[in-house]
Amino acid sequence: MQVLFDQAADGGTYLGWLMSGLFWTLLLWFVSGVLAFVIGIGVGAARTVRHLPLRIAARLYVQVFRNVPLLVQVFLWYFVLPEVIPTTWGSAIKQIAPPWASFYPAVAGLSLYTASRIAEQVRAGVNSLSDGQRKAADALGLTAFQTYILILLPQALRITIPTLTSEALGLLKNTSVALTIGLLEITARAAQINEFTFRTFDAFASATALYLLIALVLHQVAFQVERILRIPGMSPNNTPRK
């Protein structure tokens, strides 16, 4: 792994390149993750409401964003969007300097794709709650919105935390797709280091190590979150103990 500390073409070290890649991976992961979470909850909840048009719209969203490969979606945001919107906006987008020019489309693609997957988990979570929850909320006079925010979603989210963890891990891995539109995240940097130093094993091993490390931290955080959110008196899969 000595190679990491060698001088690179731009004056810094290869380790520096890798760290820069790490920065972009984490930033992309975090921003896309937050957006995906919010959008996903919204769409997932929308799939379970009584209002039919909303349910259909949400169903369509999930159909579309889950069934087109992530790479193709990212290409659409990066290459196609600027061309199909009004010319003034399109030109404005094309003016954005890299790496942000690659960053924003990547965020768009990753967050909307991941949101469609999270929506399905949330939908499953809400549907698994007993019907009585909704009925009780109705009886108490809560509006639909209040019912979701105060009663259904808090429970549904606790149920889906384990799958949300695996979605977060999936999002981390998917950030590598951004390299195809020029974002220099971890994998892109590793490939670069390989090109310049021909130390293939070192380059890709470092990238692998970084991903494994982040995944490890993620699992730890998820474990703590699950612990904090546990409701007293509920059995592990959040059904009331008999």
């Binding site: 891990l169 981390l172 891995k173 998917n174 950030t175 590598s176 797709v177 390299l179 994998t187 590793a190 490939a191 390989n194 293939t200 094993f201 890709f204 990238a207 692998t208 991903y211 494994l212 995944a215």
Partner: peptide, 21 residues
């Protein structure tokens, strides 16, 4: 565990460069 923790693109690079070696 390894295969499920790292991106497919990275795995593609690994194999593409390393399997011939």
């Amino acid at each position: 565990t390894l295969m499920r923790s790292i991106p497919l693109i990275l795995v593609l690079f690994w194999f593409f460069f390393l399997v011939p070696l």
